[in-house]
Design a binder for these strands. Sequence first.
DNA 1: GATTTTGGTGAACGCTTGTGCACTCAACCG
DNA 2: CGGTTGAGTGCACAAGCGTTCACCAAAATC
Lengths: 223, 223
Amino acid sequence: MTPAVAAGGPGGHGAGAQARPESRGERKERTRRAIIEAALTLCEDSSLVALSLRAVAKEVGIVPTAFYRHFDSIEDLGLVLVEDSFASLRAMLRDVRATDPQFRDIIDQSVSVLVEHTRERHAHFEFISRERRAGPPAVREAIGHQIELVERELATDLARLVPPSWTGEDLRVLSNLIVTLMVGITEALLSAAPSEETEVADRARTQLRMLLVGGLQWRSRAD
Amino acid sequence: MTPAVAAGGPGGHGAGAQARPESRGERKERTRRAIIEAALTLCEDSSLVALSLRAVAKEVGIVPTAFYRHFDSIEDLGLVLVEDSFASLRAMLRDVRATDPQFRDIIDQSVSVLVEHTRERHAHFEFISRERRAGPPAVREAIGHQIELVERELATDLARLVPPSWTGEDLRVLSNLIVTLMVGITEALLSAAPSEETEVADRARTQLRMLLVGGLQWRSRAD
DNA sequence: GATTTTGGTGAACGCTTGTGCACTCAACCG
DNA sequence: CGGTTGAGTGCACAAGCGTTCACCAAAATC
């Protein structure tokens, strides 16, 4: 028993080897998290579809069969990873929205937040970007669904920034355009060396400005 | 011997079993193509990193070891698939450029060409889209390099369409923006049901218009 | 304190995997 | 015609795979 779930890290926050009992539920949750983290790490340079249950188990330090106490299959695990990753993404969106809305330039702020979160939750963003197209069908679907939700939310946000003449369809088209570009920017950020990072970010700011100028003008001209 | 490379399909174009000799080189090329095609088909619903040499061999109808007569490894095969796929993409770009340049709307034409080629070379475009992020490192790099080349070519094309005040940097930023959007549109097209296809295409046209209006105006305003 | 629950164990199964090696036999070439 | 070449074969191996099953011991429950 007692799996080698190192999980948290070396220090923890209690130096003394106090070793308080730790309930069964806590322990289970701990190895569960360890499995999730191991999977995220291991599939980083391949894909979920190439990830083996045994490799995950070995990384965590449990026997392969113990895996089934937590997940039915790798695909099942994948769906949890989708949720986890989109939790990160939504945390980022919250940060974006939290920036002072009457600040001179929303774009500068948003890109900065994106850069920061991409660096901090690198594995999560890479996971989404990779499995969105290469993952098992169910995972691909789940990711697609989540992105669509984000798109819809952005559309309602945009409604407050554009002329009232815009239709819902117009909003969805622009929203989709922005999300598509943001995905592209994020992917560029992910495969950029640390030194190229600010270069990519600056380019992204310019591009978003180009896009917003066009998006807003396009419609008001067509009225 | 005599592998079961069905390759072409049932009918062929010569009904009589004339069976002319076929040189050794021809035969080798034929199974080589069969391997490439089989790999493209098999990794369609997973990824190169999950593709097994044996599965490819079985699909082609040869014994696993015969694979090595043509490729060193799956990754080696992958690099060939990259070249093949980008041959398709470049054929598309040629078609795009071939559309009458003084035609009223380049965008409408370009999207139509994109839709057509995406349908026709579905497997190639899916391959690029998937392996670009999920493939073996060498494959990812090769794809990234090819996309960068396309980006540069587009930049020189754009130079003839924008005010002469634009710098090379401006051109590259806009080019990158357009390519990023086109990649996004292609991916939307790939995962769209046939019935949604024209809807995605219409949206794409609107988005490209938004983007070009913004891109061109943004710079002339900043002068 | 006795009983049930349950996360983790370890051996075993039937497959698939990549790769090595000795082989065949038809196309090729001198 | 005789010798060489090389695409494809067939077997073998060790390693890895997902999954099964009976089992254990500690936590949880009664």
